[in-house]
Structure formats: structure tokens, C-alpha cells
Write a protein that binds this DNA or RNA. Structure first.
Lengths: 336, 336
DNA sequence: TTGTACGCGTTATCAT
DNA sequence: ATGATAACGCGTACAA
């Protein structure tokens, strides 16, 4: 079934069929109806490749993320897909892994599909060295680039993110104010948002004039994986003359590992040890006791990202950076 | 950059460029190299829409799933995307929600993108009533349909699944043999695989000649959500004269809810209560104690699905149904 | 209001 | 080994 077949059956030209298809007002109601009927009857749907060739746009956006099975990224991808769908856009998903180099190849790959825009999900797309981000500049010359959860200023690049620094700052301050002055900060990788969180923690400690808080910043090495092993790693650390009555983790997984550390060492939670995670994912509920966590408004971010994107694609002027603020969701691993 | 631009710069015709692009052997090595250089130099990549028009295929497959943020489905989508990518296929993802009706619309929608095949992820795409599955038959007339984790026999429909019934049968039998004869079966919805699991449980109980096991099959109503509430629901049930020393759940979430039930009621785990989950997801590690769970080999299934699909698209004869068997991964909620 | 004819970037079939 | 050219299905000036 092509537009030609339909036009023949309807006894009109393809132009008229095309007009009906694209909702042009300049078609007589009678002919429109007739054509519509024939279209329905034959279950005709326009070939999107052919359509994409004529137009310059595909009504498709490329979504890039490191690993769509990551509990955080999966949620983001889901929300994005839903919102794009609703806006009449199709999305093609591409998982790149965490290596920055292979990433650039993926970007080219996905660009060759002539997507109308690119969405980078997760702050791990931004490198620390300015030169690492050259590829973003390159892409943005061709299509708008949307970044979820990281900030990078450049023309045609739009960022929607949660103010991780501030959220972390407030959470750490609140824990301090509740009387816990020795807080362990747990993290794994320093992506863009990873940095922000750590900065927020440091700022809070500085502000409270906590001495020697730097010694209570612990990075879990990449090779230590599995909650059990992370908990052991923390136990080791605690043994080496590090004392703390609170833990703030850069994600919920690490938070739960901290809870497990406490349990292994006979600490009561939150009595002897308070724990705060990050992301407010479903993992918080799985933990026993349930994990207090910082909510980064993922759903709101995703919605905002898509509506900004639609605006950009429609040629409207849109804010290059939109920041939401997170909130602390209190559960059973804290008592303030 | 188009193929014309390249051909001009190389001083050849577009036909030759096309041959180089598609790896035709009938090109002189010198010209090939010359053309390749120019292609690299200009970062030219063929327009995939135009390409799709010439060929009949899009080298794109549609992936349909209810909710890509579901921890189980997300993993599946991830593996599928990775494997398709590796095979040179692009994937477009579409989340349909759990309603069967809206689903059919999505199928049509995604079909209009002229995908080469459709992958249905999750057994909830198969309805109980034969008539509910008409839409699958319809689609399969146009493109091959691959189903992950459900079985549905029809021409041009290929199923790759884990033998949930057998896995469940073996797990239940093993729990019984360890001395636990009163086992509560916990489930939420009866999708295709949900049925299979329940059947496996029943078969095991029948085989062991357990009397009145039907009373220990508990369905958690849709409206009871949140681990805490599910745990309370189970507590209620236990109060009403139902005794059990083991729980087998249809997924890990319910399994963790069962663990929480035990903890709320002062039961030692696995001493007083043994628990087995299903899916062997990352949630198993989050639980305390860590959850024993049935692994359904998702990664293997996904790989197999893609390779079968490639076979089908290449016109090779492929098995319509491939079944793998699951395995019990023992952790801390069981002691057998 | 409707129709004609061209262009979009490829692939594939003929010739040469 | 290479080139010319006809599809592929659609959108859209421009004409009528």
C-alpha cells in the first residue's frame, strides 16, 4: 500500500491524499472523508523512511545512556520514552557503556540515523577535562543536544538537572543538626553529578566547621562490587581508626551497603548509625530498615526535558539550563 | 554530504561509491581505498532513510514492553538492545503499559515505522483467551514476531523462554524435601509465565501429596502496593489460621515482602521461615538476609532471541520455540 | 480545491 | 571494473 494506491482507489491525485494525511485544511470535506475511509479500509500507513527523506526531520530522537538496566537510568529512559511518545516522537535507544571513547562512536552511529535531537541520559556523559567534551560540541552543531542530570554550557545544548549539590548540602546539614557530627561520605565514581554531591557534602561540613571531615570521605574502588563486599570494605575502613555515626551515600545501593555494614557490626540503625541514600529508588523499600533517601525528581526532570526539546524543535526560545531541587524522603534509617 | 558529493570528489560514479559502501568485491582496490579515504575525511555516513527506501528492510526492530523501568523488563531490554546493536540492527523501544487493548494500538503504531520484526518482552503480552491474541496473529502476517518469556504457537511467531513451570517445580520440591511442608505461594498477576509458575508449584505439591496446599496460595491484590503493605497483607493472612514455614514468591519483590513479613512477626529467617524469590534480580542482594531466588537466565534468553531473529530475517529455518531451564540461586533466606 | 512534476539519497539492474 | 538510470514513497512548489 502506497500513497499511489490510495490515490488511485479514491480517484484523486497523491497530492490530495498527502494533504489529508497531513491535515491540510484545503481539502473538501467530502473528498477528505472518502480518502480517510479508503485509508482505514486498507490499513494504510505512510512509509516513514520516504517521509523522512522529503522532510528533513524524522520525528525521532536518539536516547543515549550508559546502561538502560541501571535502576536509575531505566527510570529516566522510561519517563523520556513516555513523554516523547505523547509528543508524537519516536525514540531510538542506544546503550553505550561507561567508556567515554566508545561513546563518541555511538554518537556518530546514532547521528547517521538522522535523528532530530540527541538526549544524553546521566551525568557520566560529561568528562572532567574540557577536551573530553569536544564530541558534544561537534554534535550540537548538527542537532540539539539535551542532557539529563548534568550541566554543560554550549550553544544548542540544553541541560535539565537536579541541584545535587544543594540537595546534598541540605541533607548533610540536617543530619549534622540532629546531633551526628561524624558523617562518612560514600561514593563510587565522580561523574558530573557525583562531583556536585561531594561538593555539597564538603560545603555542609565546612559550614558546620567540622574538623577532619575529609578523612571520612570514602571512595569504593570499582573492583569492589556486590553489596556484601562493599559492606566489608566499609568495615575495614571503620576498623582503621575511623569513627562515624552517620553515612551519606551517593546512591541507594551504597546506602544499603552501609546498612549492611551496620548490621554486620551489631550497630542498631538508626540508633547507632544513621544512613541516607540517593535517588529514592525502589531499593530504598527493599532495605531493612527502609532507607532514607534524597529524591532527585527524575520524573519531573524527564517531563521538563521533553517539553523543552519540543520547544527547541519548534524553533521557540528555550532555557539552556533548568534546575530543580531535590528533597529528603525520610524513612527508617534516620530518626530526625 | 551525500553519495553524490563523495562520488564527485572521487571522480567516480555513485554506483561505485555504493559498491564500496556495501562491500561489493567488484571494485578495484585502488579506487576502493581512494573512496574510503574521502568518506573518512568528510565523515560521511549514508542516510539511513534513503537506504531503507531502496532496500525493503529498515534494519530496525521494534521492542515492545509494558514498562521499561520494571527491573526485570529493563534488564531484558538492555540485553536485547546490546545484541541487536552488535548484529547491526537498530532498535526502537515502545512502552505500552499493562493494558491489553492499548497495546494493540501500539503494535500498529510501531508497525507503521516499517520495522523488520517485533519483539514482545514479557509474558504479559499473551492473554488467556485465545481471542485476546488475535493481534499477534495479525502482526505475524507482516513481520516475524519474537516473544520473550512466553509461548504462543503460530506461524512466523518465535518464542524464547525459560521453563518457569519446571524451575518452580524443582524449587518447591527442594524446599519440601528440606522438611518444610507448609509452603505459602505468593503471586500478584497471572500472566503467561505467572500461570506456569503457579502450575509448577501445584504440581510439586501434588507430587508430594501435600493436603490442602491450595489454601496456601495467596494472591496479592493489585491495589496493595508497597513492600510494607504487602507484608501487612501477608501478616493478616497468617493471622487467619494459615500456617506456613516457607514462602515461594512469583518475583523478588514479593519475596522481599515475605522477608519483611517474617521480620515484623519476629520470625527468624531462615530458621522459622524460608523464602524463595524469582528472577534473581539485584533486589535479592538488597534484602537482609539476602534472598534465595530462581534465576531465569534472562541474558541467555535475550542472546538466543536475537540470534534466532537474525536467522529468521536471513531466511534460515529457525526453531519456533526455544526453552531454557532456570536454576535456584541459594542465598541467606533458605538453609537447604 | 485539486493535479503535475520534481527532489530527497540510496540500491539495483542494466549496459559498457 | 565501472557508469547511467530506474525505482523506492513521499512532500511540496507551482500550475490549473
Amino acid at each position: 500500500m502506497t500513497i499511489y494506491d490510495i490515490s488511485k482507489k479514491a480517484g484523486v491525485s497523491i497530492a490530495t491524499v498527502s494533504r489529508v494525511l497531513n491535515g491540510s485544511p484545503k481539502v473538501k470535506e467530502a473528498t477528505r472523508k472518502k480518502i480517510m475511509d479508503i485509508i482505514e479500509e486498507n490499513e494504510y500507513t505512510p512509509n516513514s523512511s520516504a517521509r523522512a527523506m522529503g522532510l528533513k526531520a524524522m520525528r525521532t530522537v536518539g536516547i543515549l545512556c550508559a546502561d538502560s538496566s541501571d535502576i536509575f537510568l531505566a527510570k529516566a529512559v522510561y519517563y523520556l520514552e513516555q513523554n516523547l511518545q505523547a509528543a508524537g516522537y519516536e525514540s531510538i535507544l542506544c546503550c553505550t557503556g561507561y567508556n567515554l571513547d566508545t561513546r563518541k562512536n555511538y554518537v556518530n552511529l546514532i547521528l547517521s540515523k538522522k535523528v532530530d535531537a540527541l538526549i544524553l541520559v546521566g551525568s557520566n556523559f560529561i568528562g572532567e577535562a574540557e577536551q573530553e567534551n569536544q564530541y558534544i560540541k561537534d554534535v550540537s552543531a548538527k542537532v540539539p543536544v539535551m542532557i539529563l542530570n548534568a550541566s554543560y554550557h554550549h550553544d544548542n545544548v540544553y541541560c535539565i538537572l537536579c541541584d545535587d549539590m544543594n540537595s546534598m548540602y541540605r541533607a548533610a546539614s540536617e543530619m549534622y543538626d540532629s546531633g551526628i557530627h561524624d558523617i562518612l561520605y560514600l561514593y563510587k565514581a565522580l561523574s558530573y553529578s557525583g562531583h556536585k554531591k561531594l561538593d555539597g557534602f564538603k560545603a555542609a561540613m565546612e559550614n558546620k566547621k567540622v574538623k577532619g571531615y575529609e578523612k571520612l570521605i570514602l571512595r569504593i574502588p570499582e573492583e569492589v562490587s556486590g553489596l556484601e563486599n562493599i559492606a566489608d570494605f566499609v568495615s575495614d575502613y571503620a576498623t582503621k581508626d575511623h569513627r562515624f555515626h552517620g553515612v551519606i551515600a551517593a546512591d541507594d545501593e551504597l546506602g544499603i551497603a552501609a546498612v549492611k555494614y551496620g548490621q554486620k557490626n551489631g550497630l542498631s540503625i538508626p540508633g547507632d548509625l544513621s544512613v541516607i541514600g540517593y535517588n529514592n529508588s525502589m531499593l530504598t523499600e527493599c532495605s531493612t530498615p527502609e532507607l532514607t533517601s534524597i529524591d532527585n525528581q527524575l520524573e519531573t526532570l524527564s517531563e521538563c526535558l521533553v517539553s523543552t526539546l519540543i520547544g527547541v524543535l519548534s524553533g521557540r526560545e528555550m532555557p539552556q539550563k533548568t534546575v530543580f531541587s531535590g528533597s529528603l524522603v525520610k524513612r527508617k534509617t534516620t530518626d530526625f
